[in-house]
Design a protein around this nucleic acid. Structure first.
Lengths: 341, 341
DNA sequence: GAATCGTCCGGAAACGCTTCCGGCTCGAGG
DNA sequence: CCTCGAGCCGGAAGCGTTTCCGGACGATTC
């Protein structure tokens, strides 16, 4: 008991070597004889020695930590992303410093004050857009930066091709024969700036155009992210003189809301209207929702890999898009009365 | 540009004082004249000075960090808890070091290796049981420990009274006239050890007993946590010769699974069977699920408060239970044919 | 007018590592 | 036998703070 906290010097003394050698042994440096290393390691283990990260950080000018900036924690997508990321970083011996920036204000604050300054070797921003100015601020930190799950092309990043995913979803509906296809466009009210560039929207328009379907403005409704708003959006859609026969939602959560509204309205899915989402949220399986799956955890891991490469001084690929995959379940089917064509 | 990284000494020189005084000024210690302090602060701000946390940590023997150990990140409950916790800690200037321990192995590893050793001023374990042995290991870290969302009575903690919550749920069903009440008991397969002590189970039994309802073993089915398993459990219950008229699920996710099964089976909720959950997951509102709400975010914040008190050297209350509240929605109603009594 | 007391500040010693630099030992090569 | 390089290791100088200790100085108090 009570090896309150040995210092490197103590271990060295106990092992009969100098602190310098002890340090080298513990950090598995090559310039130390095997026998010596073993002795030091044995002493260290026996006394549960742990190096003071502060001290070694001070001396080596690195922290062994990486900041993860995330806008939401209670949403499945971000949690799953974080899981993958954490796992990869942990394996590399890097610790994760969490920065939660739910509101616009928090974000602003984060980029102005840069609270992670000097505290980390790298920072990864999770699934939210970063403005030019914010990018500049980030750069001031002087550490590696990577983005995951989002579309910050300025940094090394890993994400899906939103545009392609949207195409997969909408093309599926078109393939089934739908022509009157609505889109529930979800935006994060806390970072609305850049929603137009979103592939999930452009993909919809492109798919329709390619199929020769004229765009109908009232068929796209924009709401904040979330189940409840998805439900509201669906209500609005049902209020149309001529409601859609299929609905493409930006995410499964939003689609789930739409399903709820549909059910309450007494409409049957997929007989009366088809619904498709994006993400393959666990909810999707439960609700038998057709969706475009993206590998979330894997994205986190890939981002983690970028980080470890970055801090190791290796240079990393600019960006990498992981593939998505259409998962057909029971919420989509051909329209009831296949009208035209 | 390029104030690559001023040191305290630089700031001190620029402000015409000694490093000692600069340090005192920056840390708002009382023994420095207002004018001097202002001068130092001005210089610091102008040059974007940030103290090296490693150095100050080394010198002050504190880290300004707290470890948060969490078994799941992609579940709403844990995310929400974490949000509250992070917010409170951030306000107090404490950083959050994240430790994700999804599997039994990860947990074991965490407690054996204690990777957070010397890295944090406190650790909070989020919503999972900690064995005697693990508690002992934790104690070896020599830092404050608090538990949130779970039932680790050995440490300062904040949580709900599971037993009482269960009573609220089951009593509600009893009040509506149900007698044949099933329980879907959810356990985390990665920490099954302690499931029997769980209040969510004992509350059920007690409520039934008090109401003079004889326990029916086949009416309680135990499954791993999660929507899918909730669905399976419900299937099993429906297979009974005499299915229940009401179902009490340990959590809303599980209840959601049950609802899905019910719907697929063509049964109506609440006309044919009532369902109640616990948590007030966002899902619950969407599914119109009656539930016992617990303030999750608030628990996180309260736990954060315990932590800041702890690291400030104040002593803290042993434990604190936050109140739960029955939220009646559309998934519960009196049984179809009010049988007896 | 001297003794006392605060207030404010500087010198310098930690804090616990990493790493540069140089020295020692030993075997190989000339 | 001498030299030289490779392999190991120790001394000591940082790394950038905090904080103890003591000194200077002006304001009180008797």
């Amino acid at each position: 008991m009570a090896d309150a906290h040995l210092s490197l010097a103590d271990v060295a003394r106990l092992a009969g070597v100098s602190p310098a050698t002890a340090s080298r042994a513990l950090n598995s440096r090559p310039e130390v004889a095997e026998a010596t290393r073993a002795r030091v390691l044995a002493v260290a283990r026996e006394h549960h020695y742990v190096a003071s990260p502060e001290a070694s950080g001070l001396a080596s000018r690195t922290t062994g930590r990486v900041a993860v900036v995330v806008p939401h924690l209670s949403r499945w997508f971000f949690g799953a992303l974080l899981e993958g990321l954490e796992a990869r970083l942990r394996r590399a011996g890097l610790d994760v410093l969490l920065y939660h920036v739910p509101t616009r204000r928090d974000r602003h604050d984060f980029f102005e004050r840069l609270p992670a300054r000097r505290k980390v070797d790298a920072v990864v921003v999770l699934a939210f857009p970063v403005s030019e100015h914010e990018q500049a601020r980030l750069a001031m930190m002087g550490v590696g930066i990577v983005a995951a799950g989002g579309q910050v092309a300025a940094f090394p990043h890993v994400c899906i091709d939103d545009h392609a995913a949207a195409r997969q979803a909408v093309d599926h509906l078109l393939f089934l024969g739908h022509r009157r296809i609505a889109m529930i466009e979800a935006v994060d009210p806390e970072s609305a700036e850049w929603r137009d560039g979103m592939g999930r929207t452009t993909g919809y328009h492109e798919a329709l155009a390619e199929a020769g379907v004229a765009p109908v403005p009232e068929l796209v409704v924009t709401v904040p992210w979330g189940e409840q708003h998805g439900a509201d959006a669906m209500s609005r859609l049902l209020g149309l003189r001529e409601p859609p026969t299929a609905v493409y939602a930006h995410s499964d959560e939003v689609a789930a809301g739409a399903l709820a509204t549909l059910r309450r309205a007494g409409l049957r899915v997929p007989q009366d209207v088809s619904v498709i989402g994006i993400d393959d949220h666990p909810l999707a399986a439960l609700l038998d929702l057709t969706t475009v799956a993206q590998p979330v955890r894997e994205q986190g891991e890939a981002a983690g890999q970028l980080v470890v490469d970055l801090v190791a001084g290796r240079d990393v690929p600019r960006g990498r898009a992981v593939p998505t995959r259409l998962v057909v379940r029971g919420s989509t089917a051909p329209p009831r009365a296949s009208a035209g064509a």
